[in-house]
Structures are given as structure tokens and as C-alpha cells.
Amino acid sequence: MMNCKEATQLLSQGQERTLTLVERLGLKLHLLICKGCRASERHFDFLRTAARRIGSPEP
């Protein structure tokens, strides 16, 4: 079973490349039992949303 450090690595890389099937399954399994990493997943998504907002031309 992967640990949280590895799981967050995959969460981050999932924003950069398509994860392999094995990686996706391993991550899914980890997220199922790990509340901290589930929170991190949402936080990473939020970081992306927020950062993109900075560069958007909306006033």
C-alpha cells in the first residue's frame, strides 16, 4: 500500500500526465482509506483553480 507522500506525489503528477492504470488503482485504494489525502486532492485542485484565476483577464 502506498503511503501519503507517494499518494500526494501521484495526485500532483495526475495534473501533469495521465497516470498508469496501476497508479490510478493504487491511488484510489489509498484515498479510500485516507482522509488527509482526500482533503489534499481537493486542495491541489483548488490551487490550480486559484492560480489560473490570477492570470485571467477578468477585472
Partner: peptide, 22 residues
């Protein structure tokens, strides 16, 4: 942020209403 086994030293918690922050 992680202990020796690679688990969270202090697990992150859900953020309340992050969209509102934007």
C-alpha cells in the same frame, strides 16, 4: 510534513467553502 513511514505528520483537513475565498 510526513513521518518516517511517509504518512502525514498532521493530516490535512477539508477547507470550509474554498470557492468563497476566490
Amino acid at each position: 510534513l510526513f513521518d518516517q513511514r511517509g504518512h502525514w505528520a498532521a493530516p490535512p483537513m477539508a477547507w470550509p467553502d474554498p470557492e468563497a475565498a476566490l
